[in-house]
Simulated assay, not measured.
Amino acid sequence: QGQVGLKMYKFGQEALSITNVEEVNTIKAFPNPTKDILTLNLLNKENYSLTVFSALGQQIPLKIKNNQLDFSNLSSGIYVVSIKNNIQNKTTHFKIIKQ
């Protein structure tokens, strides 16, 4: 028959903690398609840098204000919003349709 036994374990002095947790990609851009205002759910926008490109790869000089981008003066078409997390050095891209 099998044996039932006890094993002894020794834990180190270090505190149990998580030291390196990657941020889950929870950035959202809405509404998409948009007619004018695109809203981003960035919690700490100072941790991010944002660039908008046209479908031809031209950089569009849009600035984020109150977690919103104003597309109202842009022509209809497809744009790419590139959001870089400056803390983790990771970039997320959104394809946005401007109506």
Rank of each mutant, 00 (worst) to 15 (best):
Q1C: 13
Q1W: 13
Q1I: 12
Q3V: 15
Q3R: 11
Q3N: 14
Q3K: 06
Q3C: 07
L6R: 15
L6A: 12
K7Y: 14
K7H: 05
M8C: 10
Y9F: 15
Y9H: 12
K10F: 09
K10Q: 09
F11I: 15
F11R: 14
F11M: 15
E14W: 03
A15I: 11
L16S: 11
I18K: 15
I18V: 13
T19F: 13
N20V: 00
V21Y: 08
V21N: 13
V21D: 03
E22C: 15
N25E: 03
K28G: 06
K28E: 04
P31L: 00
N32P: 05
N32T: 00
N32H: 11
P33I: 01
T34N: 02
T34M: 04
I37D: 07
L38E: 04
L38R: 13
L38W: 09
T39H: 06
T39P: 10
L40Q: 06
L42D: 13
L43F: 14
N44D: 04
N44Y: 10
K45P: 03
E46T: 14
Y48I: 06
Y48Q: 01
S49F: 03
L50C: 12
F53K: 03
S54A: 05
S54T: 01
L56I: 01
G57A: 03
G57K: 09
Q59P: 08
Q59S: 09
I60Y: 08
I60V: 11
P61M: 05
P61Q: 14
L62T: 07
L62C: 03
K63N: 14
I64W: 02
K65A: 12
K65P: 00
K65Y: 02
K65M: 08
N67M: 09
L69H: 05
F71Y: 06
S72I: 06
S72H: 09
S72V: 01
S72R: 15
N73V: 07
N73P: 05
N73S: 08
L74I: 00
L74K: 01
S75C: 12
S76N: 09
G77V: 06
I78K: 11
I78P: 02
I78F: 10
Y79P: 04
V80S: 07
V81M: 01
V81L: 03
V81W: 00
V81I: 11
S82T: 03
I83A: 02
N85I: 04
N86A: 00
N86K: 12
N89W: 04
K90Q: 15
T91Y: 09
H93N: 14
H93I: 14
H93C: 13
F94R: 01
F94G: 08
F94V: 02
F94D: 02
K95R: 06
K95C: 00
I96K: 00
I96P: 00
I96T: 01
K98A: 07
K98P: 04
